Amino acid sequence: MDRLQSMRVFAKVVEMGSFAKAADALELSATVVTRNLADLETHLGSRLLNRTTRKLSLTESGQVYLARVRQILSDIEDADAEVSSQSRTASGVLRIYCQPGFGQSQLGRLLPLYARDMPDVVLDVTLSDHGVDLVQEGFDVGIFLGVQKFDSSLVARQLATSNLILCASPEYVARRGEPIAPADLSNHDCLNFAYEQLRHHWPIQWGDQHVNVPIHSRMISNNGAVLREAALAGMGVAIRSSFAIEDDLTSGRLVQLLKGRHLGQTSVMIVYPSRRLMSWKTRTFIDFMAARFPHPKCDPWLAETEAVAEASPDAACRAK
């Protein structure tokens, strides 16, 4: 027995004063209506209605039960309406995970714009270099760089392409000199992210050749913010994502080294558990971010020479 359906049938029969009218209102057959009410009375072990050929009347038990049933059905309608309304309204807590470099350089300026348009959304933002399980840890959405791992069952959408570039502070370059060729890096202090494949060699594209340059690590860290601070302090040369140090390059706090040499690219992905029944707060945030990065391959700090940039069909994108 579907008890909730039987409750609806009972309440409708009382409201309409007739089994036949209740059946029409519920778009059920009279037989189904009669059976639902009989099943409900059997379940309760008590008669709810007195029936005659001309009239229906509530028993004492029926009067008590009807009051509770009407309250239950009203609460269910309110709950349905509340959830349905929330599904079309951006509200509640939006939990966001983000890779720190992108988060510090981009989210800090973008989130206030989103918050201005979505005043009922509370932003709960976590920045971490460590991978997370979005579903298990309760995040609504995550922003990952291509080197980070995430569950392949999640939905991923590319936001942008970030280029890996060599950088150092002007003070370091003045003290130690600027590397002219990749091999020069072997004589410099290197600030290294804690990936095993980067500990002893840095991969650099030199013309048509791909070379692995032996390097001396002055510092190794699994935290990009620590490496950035070390580079700003003049401690050495770092490989960083262009998004992570965009403001530093623009202001001149850091300078790009070996311009025209390609160290590789990494995708910036916005990741979320499912497209199905997505909350409106999550949907609006994904659309907001996608609108801010309309050209996923556009990056103002591509490690190319000006001549190459001018000849490239993507030059207009980079000049945006």
Results as ranks from 00 to 15, higher is better:
Thr34Met: 04
Arg68Ser: 03
Arg253Phe: 08
Glu137Ala: 11
Leu26Gly: 00
Tyr195Ser: 09
Asp314Met: 14
Ala30Gly: 09
Asn163Pro: 00
Ile180His: 14
Met289Val: 11
Leu49Gln: 01
Leu127Cys: 07
Arg95Ile: 08
Ala90Glu: 13
Ala290Lys: 15
Gln209Ser: 11
Val32Gln: 14
Glu15Pro: 02
Glu310Lys: 12
Phe288Arg: 03
Asp80Gln: 13
Val13Glu: 00
Leu257Cys: 12
Met219Pro: 03
Glu137Trp: 06
Gly108Trp: 09
Val147Cys: 08
His201Cys: 05
Val93Ile: 13
Met278Phe: 06
Gly207Asn: 12
Gln71Ala: 10
Ala244Cys: 10
Ser274Gly: 01
Ser162Gln: 05
Met289Thr: 02
Arg176His: 15
Leu263Cys: 08
Gly264Arg: 05
Thr250Pro: 03
Met1Ser: 09
Arg3Met: 08
Gly260Thr: 05
Lys55Met: 08
Val173Gly: 10
Thr52Asn: 00
Val9Arg: 01
Phe10Ile: 01
Ala67Asn: 00
His130Gly: 11
Pro182Glu: 09
Cys98Ala: 15
Leu56Val: 02
Ala183Asp: 12
Ser84Pro: 04
Glu171Met: 10
Thr34Gln: 13
Gly138Trp: 08
Phe243Met: 09
Leu58Phe: 00
Val255Asn: 07
Met269Asn: 15
Ala307Val: 13
Ser46Gln: 01
Thr161Ala: 12
Ser242Arg: 00
Ala168Leu: 15
Glu178Tyr: 05
Gly146Tyr: 04
Ser221Val: 06
Cys167Leu: 10
Leu227Met: 12
Arg176Asp: 11
Thr59Phe: 02
Ile180Pro: 03
Val211Asn: 04
Ser46Gly: 05
Val237Phe: 08
Met7Tyr: 13
Tyr172Val: 02
Phe144Tyr: 11
Met278Glu: 11
Ile245His: 01
Thr89Cys: 00
Tyr65Ala: 01
Phe102Met: 09
Glu304Cys: 13
Leu28Gln: 13
Ala90Asp: 12
Gln63Ala: 05
Phe19Trp: 03
Phe139Ser: 07
Arg261Leu: 14
Arg88His: 14
Ser274Tyr: 06
Ala233Tyr: 02
Ala115Cys: 07
Arg116Ser: 13
Leu111Cys: 11
Ala303Leu: 09
Val132His: 04
Arg68Ile: 00
Phe102Cys: 06
Lys320Tyr: 07
Ser162Leu: 06
Ala194Phe: 07
